[in-house]
Design a protein around this nucleic acid. Structure first.
Lengths: 360, 360
DNA sequence: TTGTAGGCGTTATCAT
DNA sequence: ATGATAACGCCTACAA
């Protein structure tokens, strides 16, 4: 049991401390806010003692009420189940910690409705700013930069019509990195698999980068060589039936490819969840040696990718989260600059899956 | 742009609404708190309109200050990187949502110091209760049940000297489940791998269960049969060097076992991170066919376990989180019952790794 | 049915 | 150097 009043312990207030120290609330407040140079060392000591004796902790809520800022920032993520999210969260929390902010983490768990409600709830707690890894919020819900509303920083994806800071992967570069590697390794039939991408900017950008990279490679190819094959395939993970159909399409593709001869085929997953879905299916369909049949490359690195030797493009998730909070902090402190964009580079991690060599 | 005042938008207060509706704050407050039966339908309509017009949202902070409850509950987790934690978080968030609580998620990221600070920070925000997946906090930091302090519910592990509700896996049963399976499958040399377990109750319980199960099996064994082999091995994931040494010990063990003849050996990982560490090492050491050499079974199921066919004991993480919040909620609402314990059952998921059959 | 006044725990303003 | 006192936005007697 800690020191202090026993029984039903009402938390000590600033008045309690003042009384205990034989002084007024003002001086205690001054002590708390570091205006210690304005206090006689005697009084300072008394206050310090009283605080310790009562185990006093200033009430942030009351503080926030008075000052108009409570140091709370909302972190709204689309799906905490995604390792990408966890990485971002870690970086964001660390930055908050350094900057004296208190993160209010909310997980929309893939549901747009949840996302809207949490956003409301956050404003209700008067968060000073929000970091949003959006699922489907509309522009009306947030306020454009400079509108005087709660500052917002977007992560990984933009929101149509919303002018705000945004931090994410340099998608074009990341895809190009992966494609160059696949082409260098001699793959001639590449399928880019991505979740429905019309409404999510990062997916859109990745898909576009895939096509443009492919076309360019085609143009630069030996005139005599067989033409490259490349196609985009949509995989809607929220729809079991669609997933099953997509998996079947994969099977047909591989079947056809193997019949047609030795063309080396690769699947390029636009993100971790897609890669996992593919890997699970391939494992179920072709057994544990499935990688001898198809190559897999994925944006988003993960434990399992390392474990089974799948090449990946690692996103700097920690830094993305960190930078997002830094942006937000600047806004909170009153910066009035145009919307910014930080596109961080991905890193290619080459593993067995995509290189020619004998089975280990 | 949303409706309402443009420019630097100060959020509307209850007074603004009252003025806009041509009434007093009291009526607005009543409206907000659902005492709508005490209001003339005319006034009600005017208030409703005013609220909409001003886009008014009551300030939870001010509300909490007055009422003494702000609906905030702290969720302090040891390591958000652990899928177990994510599962618990999901359940806890869902329960919060249902019960009208606002989760304040904090990740100690494996650092005891962080944990202490976050706990302080939370009390500073006057959370109504905390859910703690402890790393190393001491009893003094929290208050025992019934002491009138902030109610706390423990997850997965107890804290020495602290009487509080606790929710977690039924460790004894889970380990027995796994052991029975291994023994049924004919494994005769089983190594239980666990992080340093003196100070973490769940690890201690699992280790103890391992030994007792083993001894019992030994006693019930055919007198003629060769004695079972079983040993506990400590793997300190926070110490790279220790990890390397442990991995070497694994190698020596496997070497010896294979020389000694056909004894089937299995590794039983006490949790997910341990299992991953082992799997990564075995993969690096023996290549992708490592499972033909050793069997691995793990408490904690995961994506990768499914992907490479590792048998696991799934923890009901979602439910653990959910139950924890339910317990907490009861305390918050004033329940004064003795400390409770909810031990939820694990589920054995059998996969290729531990069964005799041909390679798929 | 409606409104007035006081206070929750802080900080800011203004005296002393 | 120190202390009253009035807000901050809300809720809750109490009054009308």
């Amino acid at each position: 049991m800690s020191i202090g009043p026993v029984g039903v312990t009402r938390r000590a207030t600033i008045s309690d401390v003042a009384r205990e120290a034989g002084t007024g609330k003002t001086s205690v407040s001054r002590y708390l806010n570091g205006e210690t140079n304005v206090l006689s060392s005697d009084l300072r000591a008394r206050i310090e003692a009283a605080i310790k004796r009562l185990d006093y902790r200033p009430n942030q809520m009351a503080r926030g009420l008075k000052r108009g800022r409570n140091r709370l920032v909302g972190l709204l993520v689309a799906d905490i189940t995604n390792p990408y999210t966890v990485g971002v969260l870690r970086g964001a929390e660390e930055a908050c910690h350094v900057l004296g902010l208190m993160p209010l983490v909310c997980n929309a768990a893939g549901e747009v409705e949840m996302e809207r409600r949490y956003l409301q709830l956050m404003t209700t707690y008067r968060v000073e700013g929000v970091i949003v890894n959006a699922l489907g919020v509309k522009e009306e819900t947030l306020r454009p930069v400079g509108e005087g509303g709660t500052p917002a920083v977007l992560v990984d994806r933009t929101i149509d019509g919303l002018l705000a800071d945004m931090v994410g992967l340099d998608n074009g570069n990341a895809v190009a990195l992966g494609m160059r590697h696949l082409l260098d390794e001699g793959f001639e039939d590449i399928r880019f698999v991505v979740q429905p991408y019309e409404r999510i900017s990062s997916r859109r950008l990745r898909e576009a980068a895939f096509r443009s990279t492919l076309e360019q490679a085609q143009r630069e190819r030996d005139p005599g060589a067989a033409p490259l094959r490349g196609e985009t395939m949509v995989l809607d993970l929220s729809d079991d039936e669609a997933v099953a159909q997509a998996h079947e399409a994969v099977d047909r593709h591989l079947e056809a490819a193997s019949k047609a001869g030795g063309r080396r085929v690769a699947y390029f997953a636009a993100n971790g969840p897609v890669a996992l879905s593919l890997a699970l299916h391939l494992h179920a369909r072709y057994g544990s040696r499935w990688q001898e049949r198809v190559a897999l490359l994925s944006i988003d690195d993960s434990e399992w990718a390392e474990l089974i030797g799948v090449t990946a493009i690692r996103q700097p998730t920690f830094e993305i989260g960190y930078r997002a909070v830094e942006f937000l902090h600047e806004r909170i402190e009153g910066a009035v600059v145009p919307a910014r964009e930080a596109m961080l580079p991905g890193e290619l991690v080459i593993r067995r899956s995509t290189v020619r060599q004998n089975e280990n």
